[in-house]
C-alpha cells in the first residue's frame, strides 16, 4: 500500500515508482487525494504494464494496480 495523500505531484508517482522498482508487486494499492495525482499514477501504472482500477473514497481515490 502506498499512501500518497497530501502530496503534490510528482511525489505520488515517485512513491509508486520506488515501490514498483523495489518490490515489483503484482498488486499495489495507492491512496491519493486529488484528481491530478489520480491521473498521473494511472498513467504511470499503465505505462508499467499494470491494469489500473479507480475507486472513489471519502477523502480521494483508491487506485489498484494489478498485473
Amino acid at each position: 500500500m502506498v499512501d500518497a495523500r497530501g502530496y503534490l505531484c510528482p511525489m505520488p508517482v515517485i512513491m509508486v515508482q520506488k515501490e514498483v522498482k523495489k518490490n515489483t508487486p503484482r498488486t499495489l494499492e495507492v491512496l491519493v487525494d486529488d484528481a491530478c495525482a489520480k491521473e498521473n499514477v494511472t498513467r504511470f501504472g499503465t505505462s508499467q504494464g499494470y491494469k489500473v482500477t479507480v475507486k472513489e473514497t471519502d477523502d480521494g481515490f483508491k487506485l489498484t494496480l494489478t498485473k
Binding site: C9, P10, V13, I14, Q17, C36, E39, R43, F44, S47
Partner: peptide, 19 residues
Amino acid sequence: SRLCMVGGVRDVILFGDFK
C-alpha cells in the same frame, strides 16, 4: 489540463512522460 512549465521538463526527466 494541469499545464506546468516546470512539470513539462521534470516529467520527461523523471518518467519519460511527455504529456
